[in-house]
Design a protein around this nucleic acid. Structure first.
Lengths: 330, 330
DNA sequence: AAAATTATCGCAAACGTTTGTTATTCAAAT
DNA sequence: ATTTGAATAACAAACGTTTGCGATAATTTT
């Protein structure tokens, strides 16, 4: 069965294509009676306009591209859900591609976006490798690029991200409040700038405001590493009383060790993490965390995209504020 | 900056559009020397073909639609990741829309798919409400529909899903192996056919093969409900020694209660669930589970889609087999 | 009653491709 | 020297829309 087209409708109604087209968009030139006829037939033949023909004619695709390292990710999927919702409300569809942390895939995805003449792209850089020139070219072609989460250092782009330093500091504040004596702070992949920022902010804050608290700093790039780091540090003579986890992956490893060693939270040990909230709520007591909401970030990214598409370039770096969510783990 | 087109290339090279087009696709009619020139210029002006013009001409969009209830979902996101990967390998792009369990959104998404002339759609029904006619129409228009996970009863469609009954039976088998005396079996939303199937299979198997085991059956539509159900049942005089969780949501609730009451796994109580594996591995000891892999299902769905697009209609219902993954919880 | 306005609609070009057909050139075969 | 046949490239139509402009008929104004 072939698709219904304007031409088909026009033939059936003995009208011209242009009249049918205008009737369907409620153009004032067309009489009410013809509009009624046209709409009726369009309905019954369930006509749907061909988006490809429209974009070819209007040069406006109403499609936004999204590049994430991985869709299966607690943070990114809520980000995607948020922009999907906003996009739909505003008449845009989403084309979602994942880079799998692979710059080659990232490039390939960008190519697909260009072939599909997306009106804009949300991009999260695939780890450290920064091939910025391609994005620069998109901007030059008036395709706004909004970076999120993992953003380039370059300030020629629009960027939205969590207030990374504030997150770390907020965690530190609560550790100090708890009257911790000996803290283990586990950070993520040390190649990521986000890790470096958070670590630096955390360290500085602790030194400035609670120099007598003994802190050991480590990195763990995976759940497994976190599990092992935790195990090592609880076997030492002087037991740690509080552990800070920079990511969900780390928290999971830490919690596995805590459960294995049957440590009581929060009496034996306090736990605090940075998370979007899903993982911390899996345990009893619920883990206290500083919230980084992918959902909020998504909404912010979308308004930035719209702003970029309407007005001139607004090259700014926006951050969404962090919130401390108290569980029973501190 | 305007996009590079065939016309532009043709003008620069003093060639016709058709020659440029053929040169770029390595058509035998074109001489090697012109091909070289064309490719060089196309490269330097970084020409990317306009996907919209191509689809308009060829009537083949190379885009597949996906409808899921929610992207942020442990199961669906791995499904999406799988078909995304397969699609990319086969030159397809994905258009992902979420229904948010809302039939109205589902309809709207279908409309967007039709406007974009997707070559096929993967669909997961939004809960119980089944508005099948729309899908029937798509099939009539030679747009293959592959249902996954939550599928219609109708057998006029191609469907892929987990082997639901086998999952439940496999769990039952392992419960019997454990020598359980008193079992609490918690199932999901009782309106879903998937729940009914699993429950029936589980019950029948237990009665047939281990009638002396005392089983209580309940439903819990959310994590909270599961938490409460679990709490109630552990306070009874005759303690349960094994709990079965049909979904991740239920497992999370159950585990929260277990941690709160400080029950030891697997000595005080055994736990088994049906899951894709992420949640069960968050705990120590790791929870034993019957695996329902969104990833496997995605790959299966994709080959079904390809089969439908090539040959004639292959209206079958395929299932991916379940696997028991032993943790330390039984 | 002629002129001016308004209401309604059709014509045709354009968006960027692909592809069947035709035209040109040039060398090989008769 | 003419015919044949490759090799190479141009022409033109079509895909389904949108939209400026022109055309016709109906209505109003003078």
């Amino acid at each position: 069965m072939t698709n219904t087209t304007l031409k088909l409708l026009a033939q059936q109604l003995q009208l011209s294509i242009s009249t049918v087209s205008r009737a369907l968009k409620d153009h004032p030139d067309i009489s009410a009676s013809t509009k009624a006829k046209v709409n009726a037939l369009a309905q019954s033949m369930d006509y749907e306009p061909n988006a490809y023909a429209i974009q070819l004619r209007t040069q406006n695709s109403k499609i936004l591209g999204v590049i994430v390292p991985a869709i299966s990710n607690l943070f990114y999927d809520s980000f995607i859900a948020a922009i999907e919702e906003e996009s739909r409300k505003n008449g845009y569809a989403l084309m979602i591609l994942q880079s799998s942390h692979n710059p080659e895939n990232e490039l390939n995805n960008l190519k697909i976006f260009r072939q599909n003449r997306v009106s804009g792209v949300f991009a999260c850089l695939s780890s450290s490798a920064e091939n910025i020139e391609v994005y620069q070219k998109m901007n030059d072609r008036d395709i706004p690029v909004v970076f999120f989460d993992i953003v380039p250092k370059d300030n020629k782009f629009t960027k939205v991200r969590m207030a990374d330093e504030r997150c770390a500091i907020m965690a530190a504040e609560n550790i100090i409040k708890r009257n911790a004596k000996k803290v283990l702070a586990i950070f993520g992949d040390e190649n990521l700038s986000i890790t470096q920022k958070r670590k630096a902010a955390f360290q500085k804050f602790m030194q400035d405001f609670a120099p007598k608290i003994h802190c050991s700093y480590t990195n763990a790039a995976s759940t497994k590493e976190a599990e092992e780091v935790m195990k090592k540090n609880t076997h030492k003579t002087q037991k740690i009383d509080t552990v800070f986890c920079m990511t969900d992956e780390i928290l999971i490893g830490v919690m596995r060790t805590i459960q294995e060693l049957e440590l009581k939270i929060p009496t034996d040990i306090g736990v605090i993490s940075i998370s979007n909230g899903f993982i911390p709520n899996l345990y009893y007591p619920r883990i206290s965390y500083v919230e980084t909401s992918g959902h909020e970030l998504g909404k912010l990214a979308f308004v930035q995209m719209m702003a970029n598409m309407k007005g001139g370039k607004t090259l700014t770096e926006l951050t969404v504020e962090a919130k401390f969510i108290a569980g029973g783990s501190m």
